[in-house]
Design a protein around this nucleic acid. Structure first.
Lengths: 221, 221
DNA sequence: TTTGCTGTGTGATTATTGTCACAGACAGGC
DNA sequence: GCCTGTCTGTGACAATAATCACACAGCAAA
């Protein structure tokens, strides 16, 4: 059951739900529940079956693949206003999760029970289109990722990753390595190289981008 | 416009279309067209926009990413009874293709114009569910692929590829390399290794699997 | 048979990334 | 301050894969 205040935040992030007929809106409000996840919470994991459909209010969920060796690789991340397409996939395909989801900073979300989600998809065209377009986006993202991992050298992938983030990047080398599916040492070395080129400035848990243009040019190359 | 004979083949491959109301079935029949693609035809390519939705009757479409270097990597392939999810994605997300599609052996297919496809998805629940479940399947396949490319050594990926095919595999080392996103020489060398283990027997354009169990065990490892 | 094309085998060499093993640096709590 | 845990720098080395450069084999057409 959602409080009116939560419902408000929900509609703000997911405006297509406003067009939902009143009866269905209150059904949604009645069956959904709210959750708060502290940073680091594992929201779902490989081979689990799916418990509900998340609608993010704040925070972020990182979807990652973990190798037995301990190395990991980020597949994509889910921000407020988006949906975890992997969950849609599990619900609509009746499959199990094939990746792990981790809340990155603290995260607030609304969870729809599977039947409510299925009903929404089936009766409400705007919501359905929204789901489809996210599917579509993730699919192309993943295809990009595959070809990056297969064909691009790590330095370029790292450069890409850096320019994709807002400048004072507050993170550890390990986290960057996990995002790229590589090892910390490599990232450290590459970053050092970038710093020597004058492209970035390094600090503890921090990377400042000095010359974004150069970095971008290098990433494209 | 589809001939009754083609329509028959279509319904055989895509049984969920049988449940379509008669009026819509004849609309589909009226607006769709048939195509024959000789092996090697590029069905679509990167940055093209999407012309229609394919329903395969026979043959196969390989969806690949090509690197500027000339190396390529197969993302997945579409068989009769399946749909090219990338195309759905383009149509439903109004995006451009981000990969190349190549007919592998000669291929026959029915093409739905985009409006017909969209209408089908919107009015016909079985068809929609079918599209969703394919999306879901491809998504998990792609996630598997990403993690294989990122974390698995080439020998294991090759072994996997071999056991996934029916035994007298008629193909060139180059084609296998393209499927894996690697180079021909490497595949040749690895295959030689497998042959030395007694797992396969090599011939020109041919790989016979001798010891499937061993190959599988090696692939799993 | 000769020619030529495609496919395969192979060595040598390089490049890139991963692994291991530490040392030092920094921040926050005590 | 001083300790402790996390983060970072770095060297040495191994492993995997890519690249280059050919030789040769099998097959088919001339």
């Amino acid at each position: 059951m959602l409080s009116p205040e939560i419902k408000d935040r929900l509609l703000q992030q997911y405006p297509m739900l406003r067009e939902l007929p009143a009866a269905d809106q209150s059904e949604l409000q009645a069956t959904a529940s709210v959750m708060h996840l502290p940073a680091g919470t594992v929201v779902f994991d490989e081979n689990q079956s799916c418990q509900g459909f998340p609608l993010l209010l704040s925070g972020c969920i990182h979807v990652i693949k973990a190798a037995p060796s301990g190395r990991e690789l980020q597949l994509y991340s889910v921000d407020p206003g988006e949906s975890c397409i992997l969950t849609s996939s599990c619900l609509l395909g009746n499959a199990k999760y094939k990746a792990r989801g981790v809340a990155q900073p603290d995260t607030d979300l609304v969870v729809l029970p599977p039947p409510t989600f299925r009903k929404l998809v089936s009766i409400h065209e705007p919501f359905r289109n929204y789901i489809f377009s996210l599917f579509s986006e993730r699919l192309t993202d993943l295809m990009q990722l595959v070809s990056a991992v297969a064909f691009q050298k790590l330095d370029r992938r790292l450069a890409n990753l850096l320019v994709s983030k807002p400048s004072p990047i507050r993170t550890t080398h390990q986290a960057l390595a996990d995002e790229l599916g590589s090892a910390r040492e490599i990232v450290s070395r590459l970053l050092k190289g970038f710093a020597e080129q004058g492209w970035v400035k390094l600090g503890r848990e921090q990377v400042d981008i000095i010359d974004e243009t150069a970095l971008k040019r290098f990433a494209e190359l």
